[in-house]
Design a binder for these strands. Structure first.
Length: 733
DNA sequence: ACCAGGCTTCTTTTT
DNA sequence: GAAGCCTGGT
């Protein structure tokens, strides 16, 4: 064991209640440390206790400590919890996401790396916009070379620390991508912009190419902790390992079973090979789970255990009892949502559960809609995490683009975004001329505006440009003088954004509200130094995700994707859409190792549940707006029957089909996806609408063995006998 | 320059 | 079943 630390008043509090493995991790001081922390194993507790321990025992001064987390929320939480142990000094430590940490470092080191301190962060959208411009300039057909594909390839290259000249050039398409990469970099450079990948890439450059910087930062951070290490990509791996190379006080925490960001370059091998990188590393396994019931853990185990190449382990709990996992197949996604809503209301009644105790977890954002519609109709409060994110809304992006242009007059992408929003008579042709002019003369776009007359822009636009320029000058004078929120007000005022976004519709109102909300967010930066406040605000805005603003105490059922839910937990979880093609997702199945990652995603979902887990799938589902039959997800079938509870109101297995067309229809799907027995959806006398026959009234509803047979009298089309399951009917009421 | 309407295509997941 | 792209008309 390590040396006995000087007794500190708060040490008992820090170490109290830790199990032996946790305690080992907390008390490990010098040298590399690898913590395999299974889902719900008290990881955050251990991390914060360890930091507090280091501080409390005077092993390190807080500002010489760096902790890298995956989300800003995790960072905030960590800081708050450490503060609870050791007090205000906790504020001095560096805690943040990879990107935040990188930005902080780069702001201090910008010059030697060849860019301005006031650099702009390009988000995904900006990157796409820039690449579109590149394709255009190179005369490449965006149909043959999709922006997304090229963006991905460039991102992958950057994550591997490769420049254009280190990219493959074995095919024509390789050459195209290389060419785009070069041009894209040129746009970034001229715009004073760095994309997400650049942030990490440049920190690596800094540490690798500048010895004094390397020595400084290595010494600065005597202890480095990395959370979610399984989700680091190569560039991030190099970054932390370079940083820790001097003192070797690197502690990493992670769980290879929860590696779900392979698609953006994360490499599980980083954690699996840690012991190769540091043969003397202390390795701690946290496998005791403090979250879920045994049956939930068992279900999770049986799924994940199908993955090859995982470090063998199994979570356990000493928690007794708990219900089996529920698995239910519903007819379609509407029934699925209705079922979830029914269960929520039932459990609220019978177990006095609060709305906030429930979460609905899905694979793709598109799946949230069905739940939203049903929840709205049934007055079930919910909060949607992700989806159309705040920062991606048009009006928010517009206003941010104005601010970015003011902070950085070279930002061509922002310029192009707002030059004609609102409409001011500066069209595509003019914009192209201006941007080209800026590129040819290597001047900021802003200056191109001033030289518009000489830039060959259409004469008709000159007046408009002149006016626009005057407006921009007015705004620019206020940068560094006004506070961020005042700047927002000024932009809205000068550019007349309110009338622009108001169109009398509720959406227009929502847009104004978003502008107001943006103002509120900017306000938080008002107390900062006027010189930095704007760029601080802009950087944070670019690096903030939706979970970061998630507040668990808020009332409402949580709707969230499997990716964003990692790190959260709920008493009752509905993992929905367990169908082949959805989870696992079709696209993932086409990729190498895609299935493994989908399985981990499923594992993450299952292990979010504390008391109850529902697994649902639909027999038919609207995908791409078209109804399609889905087979039950293999993940669901991987869970032993013994762990699964039949749905309440027990539904019998499907009897043989009757009609010919139906028989054929079923043949394809019946094996893996038996038709759920019929439910009586309609009552006699009920008004319904048929997509072809129009409105009508249900005369008679008979439950047969396979279907609900309906006799309906349509107002126009007369009497019809229809299938309650197959006919395109909707209820009117 | 701008708009409306019809066409396509497409959707993983996110810092 | 939405968002983007193209076209043709003003």
């Amino acid at each position: 064991m390590s040396t006995t630390p000087a007794v500190q008043p708060d040490l008992p509090k820090i170490l109290d209640g830790l199990n032996p493995q946790q305690r080992e991790a907390v008390e490990h001081v010098e040298g590399p440390l690898l913590i395999f922390a299974g889902a719900g194993s008290g990881k955050t507790r251990v991390l914060t206790a360890r930091i507090a321990y280091l501080i409390a025992t005077r092993k390190v001064w807080p500002d010489r400590l760096l902790a890298v987390t995956f989300t800003n929320k995790a960072a905030r939480e960590m800081r708050a919890r450490v503060e609870a142990y050791v007090g205000d000094v906790a504020r001095q430590m560096w805690v943040g996401t990879f990107h935040h940490t990188a930005v902080r470092m780069l702001r201090r080191e910008a010059e030697r790396l060849g860019f301005e301190r006031s650099f702009t962060i390009f988000d995904d959208d900006d990157t796409r916009a820039a690449l579109k411009r590149v394709l255009d300039a190179l005369g490449l057909d965006p149909k043959r070379y999709p922006v997304g594909m090229i963006a991905n390839q460039i991102s992958t290259a950057k994550n591997e620390l490769k420049g254009p000249d280190q990219m493959p050039n074995r095919s024509y398409i390789d050459e195209v991508v290389r060419r785009c990469y070069v041009e894209y970099e040129a746009i970034l450079r001229r715009s004073g912009g760095l994309d997400f990948d650049d942030l990490i890439l440049n920190v690596v450059r800094l540490l690798r190419d500048f010895e004094d910087a390397r020595l400084y930062w290595q010494d600065r951070f005597r202890y480095v902790l990395v959370d979610e290490y399984q989700d680091t990509n190569h560039a991030q791996y190099v970054f932390v390992n370079l940083l820790a190379a001097g003192h070797r006080n690197l502690a990493v925490v992670g769980d290879d079973d929860q590696s779900i960001y392979g698609f953006r370059g994360a490499d599980v091998r980083n954690i699996l090979d840690f012991q190769r990188d540091y043969p003397d590393a202390r390795v701690v396994h946290l496998e005791q789970n403090y979250r879920s019931s045994q049956s939930i853990l068992d279900a999770a185990y049986h799924v994940i255990q199908h993955n090859p190449e995982r470090a063998p382990k199994r979570l356990w709990t000493d928690r007794k009892g708990g219900e089996k996992v529920f698995a239910v197949q519903l007819y379609n996604e509407v029934e699925e949502a209705e079922y979830v809503a029914d269960e929520i209301e039932r459990l609220r009644r019978t177990e006095s559960r609060k709305y906030r105790e429930f979460a609905v977890l899905y694979r793709t954002n598109a799946q949230s809609r069905g739940f939203e519609e049903v929840f709205v109709r049934r007055r079930i409060p919910y909060r949607l995490v992700g989806g159309t994110r705040f920062w991606e809304r048009r009006e928010v992006k517009d206003l941010m683009a104005y601010l970015r242009l003011l902070a950085n007059p070279a930002d061509t992408v922002s310029f192009a975004r707002i030059v004609n929003a609102p409409r001011r008579g500066i069209g595509q042709v003019t914009v192209d001329r201006l941007v080209n002019h800026a590129r040819e003369r290597d001047v900021p776009v802003w200056q191109a505006l001033e030289e518009a007359a000489g830039a060959g822009v259409p004469k008709a636009a000159l007046g408009a440009i002149d006016h626009f320029l005057k407006q921009l000058r007015t705004l620019r004078q206020s940068v560094g003088v006004l506070r961020p929120s005042e700047l927002v007000d000024l932009v809205v005022e000068v550019m007349q954004l309110k009338p622009y976004y108001t169109d009398g519709t509720p959406q227009g109102e929502a847009r104004l509200e978003n502008l107001l909300e943006l103002r509120g967010l900017a306000e938080e930066y008002d107390p900062l130094e006027p010189a930095d406040s704007l760029s601080e605000f802009l950087a944070d805005a670019a690096l903030t995700s939706d979970v970061d603003t998630y507040d668990e105490s808020e009332e409402g059922v949580t709707l969230i994707t499997l990716h964003m839910v990692k790190g959260l937990e709920f008493p009752i979880v509905f993992l929905v859409g367990l169908e082949e093609g959805v989870l696992p997702h079709q696209r993932a199945l086409e990729e190498d190792k895609g299935l493994d990652e989908e399985r981990r995603l499923c594992y993450v979902g299952i292990t979010r549940a504390r008391d109850r887990l529902y697994l649902t799938c639909a027999f038919r589902r609207h995908l791409y707006g078209r109804a399609a039959a889905g087979m039950t997800s293999r993940f669901l079938l991987e869970i032993p029957q013994a762990l699964i509870s039949a749905p309440r109101e027990g539904k019998a297995p499907a009897p043989p089909p009757r009609h010919d067309y139906r028989e054929r229809f079923l043949e394809r799907t019946a094996q893996a996806a038996p038709v759920p027995p019929p439910v009586q959806r309609f009552t006699e006398g009920e008004r319904v609408r048929h997509s072809a026959f129009g409105d009508g009234v249900v005369i008679k509803s008979t439950l047969t063995r396979t279907d609900e047979e309906l006799l309906i009298k349509f107002d126009k089309a007369g009497l019809k006998i229809l299938s309650g399951q197959l006919a395109p009917l909707e209820k009117l009421s």
